[in-house]
Amino acid sequence: MNHDKKKDVPPAGGGDGVIVLENICKRFGPHQVLDNISLAIEKGKTTVVIGPSGCGKTVLVKHLIVLLRPNSGQVYFKNRRIDNLSENELNRVRTQYGFLFQGGALFDSLSVTENIIFPIKQHCKITDWNEVEELVKAKLAMVGLDGYQNQFPANLSGGQRKRVALARAIAMNPEVVLYDEPTTGLDPIRSDVINELVLKLQRELGVTSVVVTHDMTSAYKVADRIIMLHKGKIIADGDADHIRNHPHPIVQQFIHGQVDEDDLAVLRMSGKISQAQFLPRDFE
């Protein structure tokens, strides 16, 4: 028992974060998505995760809240090991998180208001409904959607759904908010409003944020620290300037959005193929 306890305290050096990943490996079948990742998310800071599509960013943030369990390695939240807890114990931990899913994951049988108050209804005794209405109004106003209270997700556009999902993620004023691509699918102005929202939560409520994004403008704006993921490893880690001047060619390519030579070669090849003519089929 005592021995176990000792093992649960992260080794010195890794213990300075709210969430700490230690040597995380994650495989889906033969496909190794995360390869021995160690990472400490600092309290009150905004950490941005960038990387090419399909490199495992979503998988990584899901490990931070243990929606996925690692094949090996440990996850610590406030110095307590959480990757080996039961779902019921985890649920208590998870109330301190907000998670914005990449696809929004709104409940389509519930209205916008019901979506936003879902976590409140589950965890708090609501005595004053006016207060709750005020809260929903305030959260929706933050994402520019006040007045949409009684709509259903099916009637909203993709970007609007994303914003409602964001309002839901921050409904309980969580200490840690994980945003999976919060600005994807939004127009540039709305994206910037979301950036401001992330900054505001950090400044005013001291929220610890992890933002997954492809949008470098947004990354530079909100990040205290940027991490680049590539082939299951962290290949760059530092503040915005560090990343801008990073010597690694893959990092430079990614942040400048340059196509690499191999991809170009493939495109040139397929140019020839697409000239091939297919005879139209006769329709009787």
């Binding site: 929606l67 779902e87 998870r94 998180y97 998670f99 899913f101 994951a105 709104l106 409940f107 589950q122």
Partner: peptide, 17 residues
């Protein structure tokens, strides 16, 4: 449908079984 659109994971992420 709730499962494939991650709504079940969303319930878990909000600390509900």
């Amino acid at each position: 449908t709730m499962n494939v659109t991650e709504q079940i994971d969303a319930i878990r992420s909000m600390g509900t079984n």
